[in-house]
Amino acid sequence: MSTRRRVGVLALQGDFREHLAALRATEVEGVPVRLATDLENVDALILPGGESTTMARLMEPALRDSIQRRVAAGMPVMGTCAGMILMARDVTDGRVDQEPLQLMDIGVRRNAYGRQIDSFEAEVESHAIGGVGPAVFIRAPQLVQHGDSVEELARHGDQVVAVRQGNRLALAFHPELTPDRRWHQYFLTFNGEKR
């Protein structure tokens, strides 16, 4: 049996293929997660980009519960764009029935930069990746508030675009759409729960 760490990627909808490809460039094994049973065999989880309303609708209650329980026990989790929205405690400008997973003490606003023509590429600097890296913002969310235990990792203009709270990492942009793997490498340094 392989002792390689297994990192799940929520594969209900969105750019999970790009995250799985990004993980192939690292020492861990990427595993698609669609059902609660898929989560049992992973040590960490990535929530990809996509449509947060669609992912929330497709997530079976057992998977939702299991993600919340595992993350509370310390399983590392990273969310990019829609993944960040899913991780939030509060969502502004979402749908009234949109219940995020509430994995992190952050509040976000959906599609905060405007419509698709306002989507953009930029560079983002952070100590987490040891310098400046490319970032793709597509109909991206913005952080509107966060708790005291949340660390700001990167800013773009006047916006906080990367935050960490313990084993939880949320990015407003898509590192997986670039060839730069430093955000994934950074996430893989997080220690998992004791199992």
Binding site: Q13, D15, G50, I117, S119, E121, A122, V132, V136, G157
Partner: peptide
């Protein structure tokens, strides 16, 4: 803390990137 806003809009990556987000949908 405040990088210059040399944002690039309407690039190929941004255009093709939205389609990537729609996948599986």
């Amino acid at each position: 803390g405040t990088p210059p806003l040399n944002d690039r809009r309407g690039t190929w990556k941004v255009k093709a990137g939205l389609a990537e987000m729609l996948k599986g949908g």
